[in-house]
Design a binder for these strands. Structure first.
Lengths: 220, 220
DNA sequence: CCCGATACTATTGTGCACAATATTGGCCAC
DNA sequence: GTGGCCAATATTGTGCACAATAGTATCGGG
């Protein structure tokens, strides 16, 4: 009996994943009893998960009226991207200072892969590499605080993660920006790495602001 | 019979305040039953509060071993200040773009007050104005995301909030930096406002890194 | 036919009791 | 005397039941 019920897992992660995948629609009510059923977790855990998600801004909770899937507006998405921009730029700066030869090699490899996928017009794989590259920069930064904040922001932006890359010409720009970034890190040039990342994400924010209303598939 | 028990209040806020005031020592165990008694809230609420504080990094929770007051290391404090720097700089940029004449007037008034307090060597009042000025900049920025993130960071840094101002000469520097900042905002110059704030908080971070081990009283 | 009041239902909020787990102290063997 | 094992205790984790509240449908009066 294959059910959708997933037992023995942290309901917080499960719910976050469901929100991420877009299976739950904005504004949809999240009834605790239903979640207990579908997630296979106790109500206490479900409630804790909802509290946490509410605190992170992924769901809205009203007193005595339960939780609903939160709709992150385009304006908020732009704000979050701006915040992400300065934080990822901070991480890039520190990555330029701290990155090991091995980490730089991994970044270079990832850039090469991204170039290949872009040539094949495989934007989904490109997007995946993109996320991995950003993650690699953060790891190399050894800046735990920046990493934590960025992760939280990304979690809330899941609805918009596949959007900007679709804009015609954006993908090529994106690749060039990432190449600049990795070059700066490889050269251990913090200033250049920071401004490269800021430039990159400011373009993302602009693209996001310009494509209001469109829902698409893509990446930074 | 006046007891230390505070009834009918959000245990999350109460606990945060206790952590802020330093009444609780780093590493101290936070036994749920004791908190129920001292905070006068139900255990469910206490548990939720602890979860939330753990998520914010103010307490550590180990499985089946309860919660302890988290010790934020000096290194982490430096990291947080760096993150705060770029976020407050972002807010300053937006404040320069959006600040109303009235808000600018309030900032100017605050600067004047700070100068007075500094002249009287009243660092506590100076520190208070300082916090209000930073708050004012954030309000004027109308950047909800940046505000939220900064507030979270500040909450975790409570142990260090009164430190840097004590360093000889730091207070005068601080006032000059704040004056620059307000001038830039008043001139509606985003770039200058941003770099003024970054410079200011990078000095704070440096001072923090240099005064490792010292525990003091003061402000940015 | 429409409006308001009231009873009903669905859902969340909360306290309680029990189970699971870690820690502490004592005891026995060596 | 010391080390390890075992029991007792303290504390957290969790499920359950009840209370409180918001939303909804029904009924009666105008």
């Amino acid at each position: 009996m294959a059910s959708t019920r997933a037992q023995d897992a942290d309901p917080y992660l499960l719910l976050r994943e469901q929100l991420r995948s877009g299976r739950l629609h904005p504004g949809q009510r999240l009834v605790e009893a239903d979640l207990v059923e579908s997630l296979g977790a106790s109500r206490a855990l479900v409630r804790a998960a909802l509290s946490r998600l509410a605190h992170e801004g992924l769901v809205d909770k009203e007193l005595n009226r339960g939780a609903r899937v939160r709709t992150v507006s385009e304006d908020e998405a732009v704000e979050m991207t701006q915040a992400r921009a300065v934080l990822e730029a901070l991480a890039a700066r520190h990555a330029a200072e701290n990155a090991s030869a091995e980490e730089i090699e991994q970044m270079r490899a990832l850039i090469a892969q991204m170039r290949t996928f872009l040539g094949q017009n495989d934007l989904l794989s490109y997007s995946d590499c993109n996320a991995r590259l950003h993650g690699l920069v953060q790891t190399a930064s050894h800046h735990a605080t920046a990493q934590r904040l960025i992760a939280n922001l990304r979690a809330q932006m899941v609805r918009f993660q596949f959007r900007t890359i679709l804009v015609p010409g954006r993908a090529n720009e994106s690749l060039a920006e990432h190449t600049d970034l990795v070059d700066a890190i490889a050269a251990h040039d913090p200033d250049r790495a920071e401004s490269a990342m800021r430039l990159h994400l400011s373009h993302v924010a602009e693209t996001l602001a310009r494509t209001k209303g469109a829902e698409g598939l893509g990446a930074d």
